[in-house]
Design a protein around this nucleic acid. Sequence first.
DNA 1: CAAATAAAAGTGAACGTTCATTCTTTTTTA
DNA 2: TAAAAAAGAATGAACGTTCACTTTTATTTG
Lengths: 192, 192
Amino acid sequence: MAKLQKSIDKRNALIDATITLVNNSGFHATPMSKIAKMANVSPATIYLYFENKQDLVNKTYIDVKAQYTAYAFKDYEESMSVEEGFEHIWKRIADFKLNASESAMFLSQCDNTPIIDEPSLQEGIKHLQPLLDLWKRGKEEGIIKPISDYLLYAYAINPLSFLMMAQKRGTFKLDKKQIEQAYEAAWSSIRK
Amino acid sequence: MAKLQKSIDKRNALIDATITLVNNSGFHATPMSKIAKMANVSPATIYLYFENKQDLVNKTYIDVKAQYTAYAFKDYEESMSVEEGFEHIWKRIADFKLNASESAMFLSQCDNTPIIDEPSLQEGIKHLQPLLDLWKRGKEEGIIKPISDYLLYAYAINPLSFLMMAQKRGTFKLDKKQIEQAYEAAWSSIRK
DNA sequence: CAAATAAAAGTGAACGTTCATTCTTTTTTA
DNA sequence: TAAAAAAGAATGAACGTTCACTTTTATTTG
């Protein structure tokens, strides 16, 4: 019990350190020794939890992606109307990207660079199913434009990543009012 | 003919090699020796053209960004109506992202990671002014939503980056019809 | 206009450093 | 007290950059 708990703490510390350091310097510019130091662990200990550096970053990606989607779909019910459901999920995602911005930034970096290997990227995609199902329903009900899910995602969800990056860079601040405007833009781009 | 006797061809070869290799492996995983080899040049020669590795990638970024915006605004006239002008620019950008996808991918990687230093990022932003001017006019004429330029960019332009990445990954193919649908989504998200 | 000289461009090998990973030893746990 | 976990030191490979040198191009001179 105590032993297992301790192990999980160390694993989490390593994953957190990886996120922070990769955000600040990029994956290949982040030495294992630094990750170890930030997690208060010896470099050698990392290899008890992960096979190698690539495995560490793959697992970190999958972990963070799982947190992200769990957060996105929390309290979503399939009984909601399409618009209601979309607004709920959209706002959860906005919330995640703007508040858990370290995690969101890490995902953004992984999704736009070759640091994560293909199987792990695939693994991370799976979890979006509830949103795709909602869109399917929306199309059937004639509420959502009958276009590819990639287009829907590109216009309804992905802009949040851009806004998050701008906010992170400090060139822009998303307040309540602008989140409303962003939601309005997202919904107008996909509703029929 | 004072200073620059150095061949512009070599500089271009180095920049092209940088784009290709950074796209495939990421900046820090791309050794100078490999860049040199791909450009048919000695590693030492790189240092005649660029101060160091960081300078090489900064200059590459600025170069590519300039190409991108030059392409985007080609044949755009301020005399065009707001909608006409927007459609023109939007389709040029779409064209660039989907055809010059090596360049577009490189920019996307730079904009989502900490590899480019802040001054060079700022330098790259300048060139977007004509689009911002168009949006200003659109807002004044009551055609475009009176919201932040960041929001407009996030919804009208940035989704193309996502679609380009998806296409690059091979999970998705943007044909003529889908480009039309994408344009339609872009325009609906920003028009009043 | 050659031949002679200077300057610039280009090179391959080498240097010092850093890094991921492993090895050996110590500490913790049960 | 034996096995598991963790630590720190050690290792070899890889990297960015520099150095000493050669080749190419431009300028001067007789």
